[in-house]
Design a protein around this nucleic acid. Sequence first.
DNA 1: CATGAATGAGGGTTCATTCAT
DNA 2: AATGAATGAACCCTCATTCAT
Lengths: 214, 214, 214, 214
Amino acid sequence: MPGIPKPLRPRKTPRQQRSAATREQILRAAAHVFVEHGYAAGTTNRIAEAAGLSIGSLYQYFPNKDAILVQLAQRHLAEGRQALTAAIERGLPATWPERITVLVDAALHAHSGDPRLHQVLFEESPRPPALLADLRALQNTMVDLVADLLREDPAVDAPDPRLTAWFLVATTESLVHRYLADRPTSDVAVFRQQLIAVLTGMLGTHSAATQPPG
Amino acid sequence: MPGIPKPLRPRKTPRQQRSAATREQILRAAAHVFVEHGYAAGTTNRIAEAAGLSIGSLYQYFPNKDAILVQLAQRHLAEGRQALTAAIERGLPATWPERITVLVDAALHAHSGDPRLHQVLFEESPRPPALLADLRALQNTMVDLVADLLREDPAVDAPDPRLTAWFLVATTESLVHRYLADRPTSDVAVFRQQLIAVLTGMLGTHSAATQPPG
Amino acid sequence: MPGIPKPLRPRKTPRQQRSAATREQILRAAAHVFVEHGYAAGTTNRIAEAAGLSIGSLYQYFPNKDAILVQLAQRHLAEGRQALTAAIERGLPATWPERITVLVDAALHAHSGDPRLHQVLFEESPRPPALLADLRALQNTMVDLVADLLREDPAVDAPDPRLTAWFLVATTESLVHRYLADRPTSDVAVFRQQLIAVLTGMLGTHSAATQPPG
Amino acid sequence: MPGIPKPLRPRKTPRQQRSAATREQILRAAAHVFVEHGYAAGTTNRIAEAAGLSIGSLYQYFPNKDAILVQLAQRHLAEGRQALTAAIERGLPATWPERITVLVDAALHAHSGDPRLHQVLFEESPRPPALLADLRALQNTMVDLVADLLREDPAVDAPDPRLTAWFLVATTESLVHRYLADRPTSDVAVFRQQLIAVLTGMLGTHSAATQPPG
DNA sequence: CATGAATGAGGGTTCATTCAT
DNA sequence: AATGAATGAACCCTCATTCAT
């Protein structure tokens, strides 16, 4: 930025920026510690140490241990929600195989960080009701969205669109999660292809089953 | 046993049997307490109390808290293994829809007790490596079994039988688990039917397996 | 108890007695520590140490620090209440100087233990509402009792018996407390005499009560 | 000071004046916070915030928390001392009822600010010895003064003037304090009148008792 | 002189585990 | 074997105080 003398350039709100950076630091440390030790053994002292802070400082950024957990989890969920919103804004594909691919890729992306963290956050830890509600809300949004798409599409025969949508969403989520834990094949692409096929089949089976070719 | 006066006959509950009964009692109490309070808040004192024992006695039957957890979990796994063995000994059905039905029903049965206990045992608690290994072993056994069946059946098109088997087993387990948590439909029968359809679909809508050639 | 062999003598409920003894031990230690360090610096660890117990044991007898404080305070109040009841049952004296002497002696007795403890318990510490209520209740009882006596006695001129009663009770309590803190005279008897004179004076110098005819 | 250009003249708000104002601000804030939260929960951060300062600044005006407390308390005492001095300089009344009225009004005035603050400062908080000494000193001054007056007055029979003086001063202080806590009557005037009567009686009783008309 | 992020000793409390009885 | 009082390491968290900016 030529012409503007350094000291006059707008400061990047140092106070808040620093603060935000420290929060980030703590969250990263917490993620690391939770992955390494689990929730119970992931003590606040360990987190502070991993973040290179004193325990007192940690508590200036988060009121208690659970707040760290919740923040971490909600960030995960927020990412999922954003991915969903983004996909919708970009325009959902017109065909089911494509739509399912979007779904699967979103799930793979969401879990790409660390499946163990996902497990600690959503399974091992005491989940505050607010967080549980958030989790349910996101899943419901997705199920509703898919259900609506199913209803709109006359080519798909889904007597109970919500249930079918639940199957699609739940299977995607669950199998991606499980894949990362089990690694039944080392080639993600293979898994991805197979999963897409399975999900696509979920719709096909029905249609085929109930829409016998004239 | 005539001739031997009743009071002198060996008691039906010798030391070891009594001991076994007490262990059982403790395990039942632990299951109850874990379901009620979760792992962390499921203290050994609470378990002892629920078992009608003193804490000291409890420690004469189990060396530590984790031993109780592991025993409980391994029992769960053992049940699964036995169900599997039993099914094999009864003779597996010849058609895939039937086989899948057996698989689904086994999973439903395994989780029928208390899904919350399953969650505590396998998700919320610190899982000792030994237990994890056991869990993996059982799943592998099942996957292997299914993979073998897939290989034996020329009508099924499965280029990677192990992966396909993994999909079948993992989907069954995951969706049953998730169903019990989410209850997307209150009618289990509907869910069961749908799940069977989905799994059958995995093997190929077109496949001869489900449409044995007249 | 001759004739009854030792082992058959009724045991003094060892369990509970021991437990009660330990509670007592803790309370004594707590009183000591509170007097020595005040409430805030009278840590549970210090109390446990003074009681010759581990901190864990202390928490098997009291759920938290405040419970110790409350117990200590309520015991104080209970003693006061009992002294009152006992005095009533013994029959209150007929003349005011005598009645006032009873009141003063009761107050002196109540504070005889350790005025600093009284101060910590009722002034320095966070007083749970329940305790405050108890304290007020006891004082009200006393005020009411005295007020009734005032009403019954035609010789006493007390237009507002409750207020006069409050003055009597409050002055007694306050001055006894203050005396023990200030020690304006080393001879308790002198103080006692003077206080009795002051309180008697409150009822009216002219009153017949203090000037028995003759 | 002619000749010195304005900008060079010493500012009307030199370092020290500004500093004194800030100290005042802090003390006011501290009083507020202590009343609101008590001593233990009246944290230095809260005080700084209430004073509109950073915690760092606060520590540039007071070396530690207790210094604030002590200053606050000593100011209270100083006010009492000044009231006393002023009363003496104005000339003490000649009759005891008037003198006692002055005493009572001074006490009522001293506590008029906020009895809760008085409680926090002198009962709830850890009182540094220096403060305690100050408190005693003030009381002694008052007792001595009253004792001297008693000695000077031949009409009053006080065999132990210091003790009688202590009774007067202590009763005044204690009952005013207690009145504000208990509010046995909502009308302060009534209480004041009654208290004055009681205190006057303290002298009267004696004189009457020991100076039989004759 | 102001700021407020950083510090860390120390507090109350829990709970798996031991051991004398 | 059974008991349950005793243990104490470890946890989460607070707050007076410091110090680099």
